[in-house]
Amino acid sequence: MKTNLYQNKMLIDDLSCFFSNKCVLENVSLSIIKNEILTIIGPSNSGKTSFLRTLNRMNDFNSDFSRKGNVFLDEENIFHMNMEKLRMRVGMLFAMPIPLPMTVYENVIYAPKRLGVIKHGKKSEMDAIVEQALRDASLWDEVKDRLDSSAMKMSGGQQQRLCIARILAINPEVILFDEPCSGLDPISTAKVEETMIALKKRYTIVLVTNNVKQASRVGDRTAFFLMGRLIEIGGTAKLFVSPKEQKTNDYITGRFG
């Protein structure tokens, strides 16, 4: 392990992933620095979502999945960790907003209550967690008067921010965003991006996106994946202005993908 000026939150060491023996990710090594937003760009089939889903072991549900190499969270190998504990520390947000079929309030308090973050939750304590999480997800002002209505009735952008709040409520260390804005309109997208930038003070964020512009707007560093390989990683500003690799340049200027 190389020592770094910054503190590494996660370290991916020579990771390869396979779905029924088809290689979708080849020898990827990179580090994720604490309190940064690392954006991952690349065309479809580049393995970026598979990569993201390996970081909190969501791929383990697929029986065709296998992998080589290791991932460390604070120098602890995640494949030796308890899967549920890992996911409490590394939360994930999906492309489609998926509110659970309950009220807004219950959606946010669900995880802390069920996973034992708060024990024998007092009402006031739970209210505080819900309010804080919704505030952090910049949703509080919109929903504070209808916490008891169904989460399914909210708009798509609100649902997505509710999902963010739901993750914040269990206080993870790393949050993985899997194309969180692909189903949202530009205004909702802007709100989610603002939320992400506000959140990086306390969390480490990995964002997979198909939207190159979005990567340049929110990313501190950007990684470019192509055909299951990591082509280039570097500071976002630098990567977008003067990429080292020709392929990266072609992709961000829209020549393919």
Partner: peptide, 16 residues
């Protein structure tokens, strides 16, 4: 399936 995935991503066990 997304409901389940959402719950798993929050650290819920299979039984939960």
């Amino acid at each position: 399936w997304q409901y389940k995935e959402g719950a798993f991503a929050l650290g819920a066990t299979k039984w939960q």
